[in-house]
């Protein structure tokens, strides 16, 4: 497929991203670059200096809300991008409302209990909607431990064991690898298998 054909095929698709941190911001950038028709992004948090080791924000944006600031950065890549941003703490109720029209949902939270919550919500309310979840991305190296596993409509990307902690933090290379693999799964779902 030529790039113009890829872009054309993606132009009618909507992707929901839950969380605008390390996974969400980098995944959103990849999807914007390839021309996804619409992105729906949500996050309640503001940018801190410690986020800049992996999240797609800039030093002068510290203190701003992540969701509208990510939109601003995505529009700098493509001023015609269609991005709907929400400053909101996601819950089972508002997830159903915010992401109901999305073709695919990307789980991009930090905390394990939030990951569980959105997967449970999406699987029970939208059993036919694909959801991609990032699990296991702390530290560095271990390229070949990162993989994608599919459980019907649920896709898990990551090494599935490296939990983040003070001594095993999430940092740009590995978080970027997982988030771009998640974007790659989005394309595989929307365009069909290529490889």
């Amino acid at each position: 497929m030529k790039f113009t054909e890829i872009k054309n095929a993606l132009s009618s698709k909507a992707v929901g991203i839950a969380g605008c941190g390390g996974l969400g911001s980098n995944c959103a950038v990849a999807l914007t670059r390839v021309g996804i028709g619409k992105l729906v992004i949500a996050d309640f948090d503001v940018i801190e200096e410690s986020n800049l080791n992996r999240q797609y924000f800039f030093f002068e944006q510290i203190g701003k809300y992540k969701a509208p600031t990510l939109k601003e950065n995505l529009l700098r890549i493509n001023p015609k991008a269609n991005v709907s941003d929400h400053i909101i703490k996601l819950t089972p109720n508002n997830i159903v409302d915010i992401y109901k029209d999305c073709d695919v949902i990307v789980e991009a939270f930090d905390k394990a209990e939030m990951k569980e919550m959105i997967v449970e919500t999406v699987l029970s309310h939208f059993p036919a909607k694909p959801i991609i979840c990032g699990v296991g991305l702390a530290g560095w190296g271990g390229n070949n431990l990162i993989k994608t596993e599919q459980f019907r409509k649920l896709y898990i990307v990551g090494d599935r064991t490296s939990e983040t902690s003070e001594n095993d933090p999430p940092i740009a290379p590995r978080v970027g690898a997982v988030s771009n693999m998640m974007a790659n799964v989005v394309l595989e779902i929307l365009l069909g298998k290529d490889k």
Partner: peptide
């Protein structure tokens, strides 16, 4: 399927 959710993002 028993899928473990662990923190990090």
């Amino acid at each position: 399927d028993v899928i473990h959710m662990i923190s990090g993002g």
